[in-house]
Design a protein around this nucleic acid. Structure first.
Ligand SMILES: [Mn+2]
Ligand SMILES: [Mn+2]
Ligand SMILES: [Zn+2]
Ligand SMILES: [Zn+2]
Lengths: 146, 146
DNA sequence: GTGATAATTGAGATTGAATCTCAATATCAA
DNA sequence: TTGATATTGAGATTCAATCTCAATTATCAC
């Protein structure tokens, strides 16, 4: 059994919830992807495969997957929420290209240190953070203009 | 004339737009506030003062104020967009208390440096960034538990 | 002034993501 | 098998935000 299924099942059991076929489909579809995805995308992929689901179940299951720590919500400022995997991915932040929309992930040890320091200086008990840098990616600069 | 009005007027002229009474009201109301505010809040304040406005004009004017650099959109992940002043405020980032909802602003020189460095290392032309740290503020910890 | 031209407004309609409702089903433990 | 509980989905609802468009207002050339 895939680790995400194991985790999800345990979570459901611990909450007296059930691992239903519908939830299984959402789990599979969510872990088939490896980018930042939206609920409506999942819905249409699942529909294409002619599997049974409803919009309500998708949204409800995504919420459960976030609660059990398998997924995280990522906000890129658009009109809809995006999700990404937590399992198997270390914490990272994002560069967002304003021209092509590409999302580039990065991690930087110094950032984590700096966050600690800021929290200490501000007397704040920081739990997690998000840093987004908006700009133009190297592809869009096209080897020419800087 | 207040600097924000000067700037807004110049911007409007440069775009062949007009400084109308309706736009003036929105400008005034937006600069009367000194926190992070929502469009609907502005609308109801203005309505209370029995000044004429429509929802459409509020949203349209806020967009203009963002375009001319007087305001900035700040996203705290809620259901609606927030705005804050740019004029008279240096760039800063936010601590968000998950218990009481308080927003605390901070600036850190090292953060700007680090951002530069990250962009360089990632070959990314970063224009601006937002860092949000979520956690519990010192008030909510209440001098006791850490 | 006068009229052509363009900008503006606001009431209300529309959009679209997300959530909610609730009757019909499914699941599980005893 | 039975009763308690969880689940589902079609469709309604919410709500911020945007759009529509006819009526109004400002601006400019003559
Ligand atoms: Mn990511
Ligand atoms: Mn701020
Ligand atoms: Zn790009
Ligand atoms: Zn607090």
């Amino acid at each position: 059994m895939r680790p995400e299924e194991r985790i999800f099942r345990n979570f459901l059991v611990s909450r007296d919830l059930r691992f239903t076929p519908e939830r299984e489909v959402v789990l599979q579809e969510a872990f088939q992807r490896h980018d930042h995805f939206e609920a409506e995308e999942l819905l249409s992929s699942i529909r294409k495969k002619r599997k049974r689901t409803s919009r309500a179940t998708i949204y409800r299951t995504l919420e459960l997957l976030v609660q059990c720590g398998l997924l995280e919500v990522v906000d890129f400022g658009g009109s809809s929420q995006h999700y990404e995997h937590v399992l198997g991915h270390q914490h990272h932040d994002h560069l967002v290209c304003e021209r092509c929309g590409r999302i580039i992930e990065f991690t930087h040890r110094k950032l984590e240190k700096l966050k600690e320091r800021i929290c200490q200086e501000m007397d704040f008990d920081g739990r997690f953070h998000t840093l987004k840098i908006f700009g133009i990616c190297e592809r869009c600069r096209g080897d020419s203009q800087r």
